[in-house]
């Protein structure tokens, strides 16, 4: 399984999509963290390194989320289309081991992408003489990476059986629903009937990605961290990952 995970990770990292998006992400980080920009948030000019750090982390979270979806989209369908599956399965690798490994490989590639953005932030922390920010921002990134890992796993699992575009749309929907979880939760509480029931099902299937982001933010600001949403998202990630044990295509 390690060979498969390693190979998937290597393929994703060597992919063009990864390089293009990673380059754009790092360029944005450079623009944001070098300060003296005209960035306005909530009507206020954001300047100064300390103010830029949360903005840079937000961008990292957002770009990494999208990249997690893009990176994970094609891995499994490509394996079936190229029929690389044949040469793997004849070597006694079980379908579940195969799907699990490909999914974990995707997750690691997503994590790597997030950490590579973070590295540019570390460089700026050092360059601006703020090494004290390295540890809190690292912890913040680790918590935020749970969201990317979840998105990657969800897209990978959907792509086992569904076409690539369905997996892509599902990934974006999960991301949006996860980020708007709190808002949808409140709307579902106030709504009634079929709409409320549908919203409840959607909420049940989607982790509260915004709450995870909030905990990451709490680490940065020194506010108390609630492990609840983080654990709940990890559990959902675990369950999604477990689906790789039972899902496979009829024809390989």
């Amino acid at each position: 399984m390690l060979a498969l995970i390693h190979n998937t990770f290597r393929e994703r990292i060597r992919g063009k999509t990864f390089h293009v998006v990673a380059f754009i992400g790092m360029a944005i980080m450079l623009l944001v963290t070098t300060g003296d920009s005209n960035l306005m948030i909530n009507g206020r000019k954001v300047s100064g390194f300390e103010q830029m750090v949360p903005v840079a982390l937000s961008i990292t979270g957002f770009v990494s989320g999208l990249l997690a979806v893009m990176v994970s989209l094609r891995t499994i369908p490509d394996e079936f289309e190229r029929k690389t599956t044949h040469l793997v399965l004849v070597r006694g690798i079980k379908p579940w081991q195969y799907m699990f490994s490909l999914t974990v490989g995707n997750m690691l590639a997503s994590l790597f992408c997030m950490l590579s953005f973070y590295v540019s932030l570390v460089v700026f922390c050092v360059a601006y003489g703020r090494p004290g920010l390295i540890l809190p921002t690292f912890l913040c990134i680790i918590v935020m990476s749970i969201n990317s890992l979840f998105l990657s796993a969800a897209v990978s699992v959907v792509s086992i059986r569904a076409p690539v575009y369905v997996a892509g749309v599902a990934g974006i929907l999960v991301y949006a629903a996860g980020i708007l979880h709190g808002v949808l939760d409140t709307l579902a509480d106030t709504a009634q009937g079929v709409g409320a029931a549908a919203a409840r099902i959607l909420l049940f299937l989607t982790p509260d990605l915004s709450a995870v982001q909030q905990q990451a933010s709490n680490i940065l600001t020194g506010a108390p961290v609630d492990p609840g949403p983080v654990l709940a998202t990890l559990l959902l990630l675990y369950l999604v990952l477990s689906l790789t044990f039972v899902l496979f295509r009829k024809e390989v």
């Binding site: 108390p224 609630d226 492990p227 609840g228 654990l231 709940a232 990890l234 559990l235 675990y238 477990s242």
Partner: peptide
């Protein structure tokens, strides 16, 4: 899996968030 489920259970039993 068991540890995660236990963690979620414990945190959800607390009910009202500490905040």
């Amino acid at each position: 899996g068991v540890l995660l489920a236990a963690g979620v259970l414990v945190t959800s039993l607390r009910g009202l968030p500490g905040e």
